[in-house]
């Protein structure tokens, strides 16, 4: 398996996901500068977290128009797996690879804490290592993570099992909506991550790479990377 992490000016989780992926894959990960117009053959493209272009104008807006993104969009259309984490999720939305938008957190402040998310679809290359309904504890750290989509899009996301993760309480609260503190940003329908229709593109706000090593205090994020390794190897 070959994996590539795109580095935008202002990316700051590029090294973190590189280390976590390399540990899961047992091999090196390519780092690709945003100004590149070509990319070597790869099985997985990661858009990392950070504040690309300072989050100026809108989060992810300028990165989504950087040279390398034309290539990322083309590869995504060919079915190459694309993972966008936090700022990477914002870039995927701005680039039109996923529907909806991410708005300022409902609480208006940056929020960094561990949250619980429930696996809503375990039949994908990103989630095959998890059980359906499994609750994961993974940190979020963002200022603009409130997922928004119009009602038609939401209907489509639900119908096609494109909601990857939902914020939830410790017990998973399968029977109802997450409590006010469980949904850290006011996302509509408690959505923490979504797929494209083919389930080859995933965008999520929580940071699996920050729950991938025992020193982090939890390793629930490893499963996502392990899923990719087993699906793409």
């Amino acid at each position: 398996m070959k994996a590539s992490v795109i580095v935008f000016p202002g990316s700051n989780c590029d090294r973190d996901i590189q280390v976590a992926l390399a540990n899961s894959m047992g091999g090196p990960v390519d780092m690709v500068w945003h100004g590149e117009t070509e990319m070597a053959k790869t099985d997985l493209i990661v858009l990392p977290g950070g504040f690309s272009y300072g989050d100026y104008l809108r989060c992810g807006a300028m990165s989504a128009r950087s040279p390398v993104m034309r290539e990322v969009v083309a590869r995504a259309e060919q079915g190459v797996a694309v993972l966008g984490i936090c700022n990477g999720f914002q870039i995927l939305l701005e680039a039109g690879l996923l529907p909806g938008a991410l708005l300022l957190n409902a609480g208006r402040n940056f929020v960094c804490r561990d949250v619980n998310i429930r696996v809503e679809n375990s039949q994908t290359p990103f989630t095959n290592g998890y059980e359906q309904g499994q609750v994961l504890r993974i940190p979020v750290a963002h200022h603009d993570g409130q997922y928004f989509a119009d009602p038609d899009t939401l209907v489509e996301l639900r119908a096609a099992d494109r909601i990857a993760f939902r914020y939830c309480g410790v017990g998973g609260d399968e029977d109802g909506a997450a409590g006010p503190r469980d949904n850290p940003n006011g996302s509509i329908d408690d959505i923490a991550g979504i797929f494209n229709d083919r389930k080859t593109v995933l965008g999520l706000m929580p940071h699996p790479e920050r729950a991938a090593d025992p020193v982090h205090g939890g390793t629930d994020g490893r499963g996502l990377l392990a899923s990719l390794v087993s699906a793409l190897a």
């Binding site: 700051n12 989780c13 090294r15 973190d16 280390v19 976590a20 977290g49 402040n109 940056f110 929020v111 960094c112 804490r113 940190p139 750290a141 940071h207 790479e209 920050r210 991938a212 090593d213 020193v215 982090h216 205090g217």
Partner: peptide, 24 residues
């Protein structure tokens, strides 16, 4: 401290709230 990103760089061992913070 929830308004501060305390885990970027993925080397934070002990988060805010203790006697001393620890980074790997």
């Amino acid at each position: 401290w929830e308004q501060y990103d305390n885990s970027v760089m993925a080397d934070t061992v002990r988060k805010p709230g203790g006697d001393a913070a620890i980074v790997r």
